[in-house]
Design a protein around this nucleic acid. Structure first.
Length: 799
RNA sequence: GCGGAGGUGGCGGAAUUGGCAGACGCGCUGGUCUCAGAAGCCAGUGACGCAAGUCUUGAGGGUUCAAAUCCCUCCCUCCGCACCA
């Protein structure tokens, strides 16, 4: 029989699928399944991470087709972004030319992997047909007050010369180039994602098929904390200082108050005091430090006394007011009440600066707490002491009671603070969606009317690399007329953050050619939500949070009827080489193209699924790759020795394998599914297969190695593609065994095994065991104390 | 510090309502085929031991007839968040 010529076979079938639109997803045909992998940035070259991500999704999609679903499995390109601009600066290529070239190259590579995309639905976010809907969405948000402009300090990456969202600052550096981010006062566009914070948090409970850690990361990012805002009064002027605490039960233990160095009240408090100079010096020192420096000095908490005192409203006690670097202006009220006995940070600071302490929650266990003996704060539960009329209450109860009491007395207010901030979307960049806003001297900020969309990005702009928005230097773009008064006006020259583009692309795939709306609500109703989403963990916060936000916004517009866009989420692990992430700088990249060239796409797909479970990290291994290729060849050669009829051993194994592989595919355990198929093939090599058995093997393996299996299917005499062939079903009759091997242990150690009929009775087994020669020496050491029988599995005799 | 995941042969990894630890693959060893090699095919392969056997799932303890799996104490690795009041 012919050699396994993977090159020829793979090209043949890729052309076939493309020509026949094999994977075209039809609207409302039958039960749908939407399988989506995170679309790539068109860098021009796919890497092993893509290969892994897309292979997982592809196998699942193909499997779902065979199970009778109408599968939507689309692909597109997240095509706006900085690399295109950098290429323009470096190579003098226009960003759109560069991007389109990269897209063409990546389409070729993705096709070369044999992925089952519905290419008719391909989208690219840099096309006006796509980004006009970014602008449309922005205007809808603007109308509802969800897009607004505000001047405030923003994260600025000096190297990229642009702003960054909070989510894009990693360890104080730019997520893309790792340059230290600085704070800069700028007027910028924001999206009011905070209006959705409750829903974004609450609806996490709907996502029971998301990885736990992603849910946790999102919840932490949204950062809800409930507590009380308590009003302290400055002693001499009566100025009110609101502080926030989640521990109102410790209010009687507050022995000082701390303000953040940037707190607006500081100026007022220190003006004209002897301490003024020292305080100012301290503030200068702290505020000049970068956020990194400030947070890295975590161990030592620095601070300075203002010279003034505040009155604790619950007991009218005078407590000193300090300023310290460990209190952050961005969170809560920028001021805290310090309870050193029950908060570790306050404890360290109080020790450092010799401030008073008082225990107000007594540890119910012995030994009781004593201030002189404390080496750290007691943050556990206990009973209220030194707390006036609340003494004796369990503190968890007191939390509620005291909060309500303070609210009643008007000295506090029950409040909830959130960590989530509004989303900064302005970027001083060229290669992105122009923000559809016009500035008119007379009318102010004027939205571009819907009928004027899209605001098209001009093809040419000066790319100097000097920073600042290139669009602002394009006169024909900037100069326009005001839609309201027709006077001369200027366009907004910032573009949108590219995360905007990817926050709704999954909806666009439902109706990629829609001309009146970003997507057709009816088609979205059929296809959405995405049944299975697959991508990298690096998007656990940004992309997934923004997409959830957009979905909820579309729900409010009445365009969709669900809360959450992604029903199941799989985060695939990274591909490593020599224990490290593949990267250019480390020079440890394995190029997928070279592997396809050498072993074929099917072998690459097989290896990457076999080497590790999808969620785990995967260590690249050239020799493992060869093993995958060897296995495919073994399957290929089965055709040479088909028998008239397969024997019972093979059939038994076959049905066992159908069951195992089906279950494993369903739950993404591709590595063990492949292992099961290898076992079956090993059995076939021992006993031989017939046509029917071989056909089943081909169908089971088809989602993983589709090219070779299509070819074998054809060789076996089928005219059509197997892509929509019915998934094999196992016959339970073949799984029923007549006899089982029962392991016999003596004192927990395996000493013998015996063949027995299924569901053999205990007394019969006992008889068989006592007659077993092999067991005699072990049983003769003493009387049998215990005889444990686990039906059809194991016998353990204790002597 | 908090949260999450994890630690099993030379390597990647199987095995979880507690029931034969190491499936499958890689590597290695031997055989077969060959003038020879490659490929293929067959067999062996946790450690120690000539063997009977003993030991073995990060360390130590416990529960149990039986523990990689459950409980306790501890160690280590990776990831995320991090002075969030």
């Amino acid at each position: 029989m012919a050699e396994y010529n993977f090159k020829e076979i793979e090209q043949k079938w890729q052309a076939y699928w493309r020509k026949n639109h094999t994977f075209k997803a039809g609207f409302q045909k039958r039960k749908k399944f939407y399988c989506l992998e995170m679309f790539p940035y068109p860098s021009g070259k796919i890497h092993m991470g893509h290969v892994r991500n897309y292979t997982i999704g592809d196998v699942y999609s193909r499997y779902k087709w065979m199970c009778g679903f109408e599968v939507l499995h689309p692909m597109g390109f997240d095509a706006f972004g900085q690399p295109a601009e950098n290429a323009a600066i470096k190579n003098k290529t226009k960003p759109d030319v560069w991007t389109h070239r990269c897209i063409a190259e990546m389409e070729r590579e993705l096709s070369g992997m044999g992925f089952s995309y519905d290419w008719d639905r391909e989208i690219s976010t840099c096309e006006p047909e796509y980004y006009r809907w970014n602008q449309w969405i922005f205007l809808k948000m603007f109308e509802r007050g969800l897009a607004y402009k505000k001047a405030s300090p923003v994260n600025w990456c000096p190297s990229c010369a642009t702003t960054l969202a909070n989510e894009e600052v990693i360890d104080g550096g730019c997520w893309r180039c790792h340059t230290q981010v600085i704070q800069k006062e700028l007027e910028q566009w924001y999206l009011k994602i905070t209006d959705y914070k409750e829903r974004l948090l609450e609806d996490l409970s709907e996502l029971d098929h998301w990885p736990e850690r992603v849910i946790t990361m999102q919840a932490n990012w949204i950062g809800k904390s409930q507590g009380v805002e308590i009003y302290f009064k400055e002693k001499s002027t009566g100025t009110i200082i609101p502080v926030f605490t989640t521990r109102p039960d410790t209010i009687f233990g507050a022995t000082y108050v701390v303000l953040a160095p940037e707190h607006p009240l500081v100026e007022k408090l220190i003006a004209g005091r002897p301490e003024e100079k020292t305080v100012r010096q301290f503030i200068n020192k702290v505020t000049q430090e970068s956020k990194i420096q400030r947070t890295s000095t975590a161990v030592k908490k620095e601070g300075v006394f203002t010279g003034t005192y505040a009155i604790n409203p619950v007991n009218n006690e005078e407590v000193p007011i300090w300023i310290a670097d460990y209190v952050l202006m961005e969170y809560g009220t920028g001021a805290i009440m310090a309870v050193p006995t029950h908060d570790q940070r306050d404890f360290l600071f109080a020790k450092e600066h010799n401030l008073p302490m008082r225990i107000v929650i007594q540890n119910p266990m012995q030994p009781h707490l004593r201030v002189e003996e404390m080496t750290q704060a007691y943050e556990g539960d206990g009973v209220q002491i030194n707390s006036g009329q609340f003494n004796g209450l369990p503190n968890q109860q007191a939390k509620k009671v005291i909060a309500e009491w303070m609210e009643q007395k008007g000295i506090g207010k029950i409040k909830t603070f959130w960590r989530l901030r509004d989303w900064l979307i302005s970027r001083q960049r060229y290669w992105g969606t122009p923000i559809p806003i016009i500035y008119c001297d007379k009318c102010g900020i004027v939205p571009v009317p819907y009928q004027d969309l899209p605001v098209v990005l001009p093809k040419e702009a000066p790319f100097t690399g000097e920073g600042g928005s290139p669009l602002s230097k394009v006169k024909e773009f900037v100069e326009t007329t005001c839609p309201r008064c027709q006077q001369k006006a200027r366009r907004e020259t910032d573009t949108m953050a590219t995360f905007f583009d990817s926050s709704w692309y999954f909806l666009r795939f439902c109706s990629p050619k829609a001309e009146n709306l970003p997507f057709e609500p009816l088609e979205a109703k059929y296809w959405m939500p995405v049944d299975q989403y697959i991508g990298g963990i690096e998007h656990a916060i940004l992309h997934l949070l923004y997409s959830r936000f957009f979905t909820k916004f579309f729900k409010d517009l009445g365009m969709v009827d669900f809360n959450e866009p992604f029903k199941c989420l799989l985060t695939q692990g990274m591909v490593l080489k020599d224990g490290q992430v593949m990267s250019k700088s480390k020079g440890n990249i394995v190029d997928p193209d070279s592997m396809i060239e050498k072993y074929g796409a099917d072998a690459l797909r097989l290896f990457i699924l076999f080497a590790a479970p999808p969620e785990a990290e995967l260590e690249w291994d050239d020799r493992g790759m060869e093993g995958a290729y060897r296995f495919l060849n073994r399957v290929w050669r089965i055709q040479d020795n088909l028998k008239e009829k397969a024997n019972e051993v093979v059939l038994r194994q076959l049905h066992k394998t159908i069951k195992k592989v089906s279950e494993d595919y369903e739950s993404f355990k591709f590595n063990t599914a492949i292992a099961a198929m290898m076992e079956l093939v090993n059995t076939i090599y021992l006993y031989g297969a017939d046509k029917k058995v071989f056909e089943t093997v081909v169908l089971l393996l088809a989602p993983i190695a589709p090219h070779m299996c299509e070819e074998l299917w054809q060789i076996l005499g089928h005219k059509d593609s197997l892509a929509k062939e019915k998934w094999p079903q196992y016959d339970p009759a073949w799984l029923v065994e007549k006899t089982v091997t029962i392991v016999v242990q003596v004192n927990g150690k395996v000493r013998s095994r015996l063949e027995a009929p299924v569901d053999c009775s205990e007394s019969e087994l006992k008889e068989a065991v006592l007659g077993d020669e092999k067991l005699k020496p072990w049983l003769s050491t003493g009387p049998i104390k215990k005889f444990v029988v686990v039906p059809n599995k194991i016998i353990n005799i204790v002597v």
